[in-house]
Amino acid sequence: MSAGAAVSTGAAEIGQSERRWRRRSLWALLILLPATLALGSYTPVKWLFAAKDLFPRDVEPGSTVRFGGSDWKLEAMLTTKDTGSVKLPENAVPVFVDFSVTIGDPDLQKLWTGCRITLADAAGRSWLPTSLPILRYSDDWSDCNSATFSGAAAGATLKIREAFVVPKDAIPTIEPTLGLGSERPYYLRFLRARD
């Protein structure tokens, strides 16, 4: 009789401690599952942020902004009627975007890699620089990626020009944007003067 009682007490004790651990484990899941998710997605999210221009910083017209260690100023956004030998589609317009950049930190290969200048319109469309040869080669101007490898020294001023081809209907709202590898996910959006 007494032996039987001892066994049943033992079973009850095991059951109780088991139940306690089961409860602890379930509570632990509440912390561990989100922690696993966070840990697993940390690297992909970091890559995503390093690769994409996600959050704009607005730049007022005519102002100079430090970005990627240098001072950027949007000088002009121009178009031309003369595209040389290149024949554009009827509704297409060439647009040149000119920056002057005063170099601060001269390690451009580290700070400027993945330089991406685009034109974005109010409808959310965006254009990359064109591959059509509408831009004459010139010693005065370079594009952003060749400027990155130009070896420019601190204090030098670079003139950067990119050429785009956009449809006519985008012209009223297009704004230049600038993304640099060292500044992502932030990028600059150069606002246009309101007339």
Partner: peptide
């Protein structure tokens, strides 16, 4: 083909 928005080719 490099294609641009609004400029069918």
């Amino acid at each position: 083909f490099t294609v641009e928005p609004g400029l069918p080719a």
